[in-house]
């Protein structure tokens, strides 16, 4: 089994979830999957559950640059992309790059930014480049946006429309850590200080190579049939207004590839698809107005449960 740089990636995961970010194993794994597929991830959870810590640790141990934007309603697009400032010494305008010019960008409380800023950011996510004053600047590779949003506080927010949600390959929560883990965290305090001095265990090139390996994972016909069956089932479900888009189905295949890679397989099995279906697809469902109260994850799990896995 020769999957390039898989061992290194697993080592990073073990390091992070086993030692630094206890109780966040799943979220860290999903972040890595998003990174490997070249997608972005939306973390929806309450404040104070370690979203920022996780992002910092993640960036640190990967040896990647890290940028952070705290969204407020008066945040301007230029606060993210950067802007040109007149340099009196040089006698010309120089472009000061914004926080988006980093490998890992943490967008905190993305739903507090106004739609104009949100769309500028989402455009950068999709295009992987930024155009300011007629000049196009490519964004660094790899590029991962970790956006967070608070699901409870809704006052003064601009919730992301479903169309924008579609651009995140994964959406997940972190959740409270298990009892023992949380007590342990309380005993030892925050690890923010520690994280500042993390030594990266993988190189930038390792990461690029791993991404290429993920891209080359084999997806068989049966798995494609299965993905299509899920997409179609969501489109035909009576409670759903709009099911999974083709982009969503592509995301499902990509995420399944990353899962297969991390599992040490060079091909995708239907179980990979099933495992990632909820995090990849649920935020893409648009429910009928009268069904708003239903939790999308539960609905999606119910739909997936009804579709038999192809075994032959």
């Amino acid at each position: 089994m020769s999957l390039a740089k898989r061992d290194e990636m697993i080592a990073v995961l073990d390091e992070l979830s086993g030692r630094r970010l206890r109780g966040k194993g799943r979220a860290v794994r999903l972040c890595l999957m998003a990174l490997l597929t070249g997608g972005h991830i939306l973390l929806e959870d309450l404040p104070g559950l370690g979203k920022t810590t996780m992002a910092l640790a993640f960036a640190g141990s990967m040896g990647l640059s890290f940028g952070r934007v705290q969204c407020t309603s008066d945040l301007l697009p230029s606060d993210i992309t950067g802007l040109s400032i007149y340099d009196r010494n040089a006698g010309r305008f120089t472009f000061i790059k914004g926080p988006v010019f980093n490998n890992i960008v943490l967008i905190d409380e993305i739903n507090r930014a106004m739609p104009k800023t949100q769309s500028a950011l989402l455009e950068a996510m999709e295009e992987r480049r930024v155009t300011v004053e007629g000049v196009t600047y490519p964004l660094p590779q790899p590029f991962l946006v970790l956006a967070t949003q608070n699901p409870i506080e809704q006052v003064g927010t601009f919730p992301l429309p479903e169309a924008q949600m579609d651009r995140f390959i994964l959406k997940t929560g972190i959740g409270y850590p298990p009892e023992e883990t949380e007590k342990n965290i309380l005993m030892h305090g925050s690890i923010r200080e520690e994280i500042q001095h993390l030594t990266p265990t993988v190189t930038h090139d390792d990461l690029i190579e791993a991404m290429r390996a993920v891209h080359g994972i084999y997806v068989g016909e049966k798995v494609i049939d299965y993905v299509y069956a899920i997409a179609r089932a969501t489109r035909e479900h009576p409670m759903v207004l709009a099911g999974i888009s083709t982009r969503g189905a592509i995301g499902l295949v990509d995420a399944a590839k990353a899962a297969a890679y991390l599992d040490g397989r060079s091909f995708v099995i239907p179980e990979d698809v099933k495992d990632v279906a909820a995090v990849v697809c649920s935020h893409r469902l648009m429910l009928k107005p009268e069904q708003e109260a239903i939790r999308k994850e539960e609905l999606l799990n119910a739909i997936v449960k009804e579709i038999p896995l192809p075994v032959t």
Partner: peptide
């Protein structure tokens, strides 16, 4: 409506696990 891997994982039988790996590698 279980898949082969899922079933072998649940049953925790090394023989079945190996079967799933060989079988899945070909079929998928």
């Amino acid at each position: 409506k279980c898949g082969v891997y899922e079933a072998s994982r649940r049953l925790r039988d090394p023989a079945l696990k190996e079967f799933a790996a060989i079988y899945g590698a070909a079929v998928y």
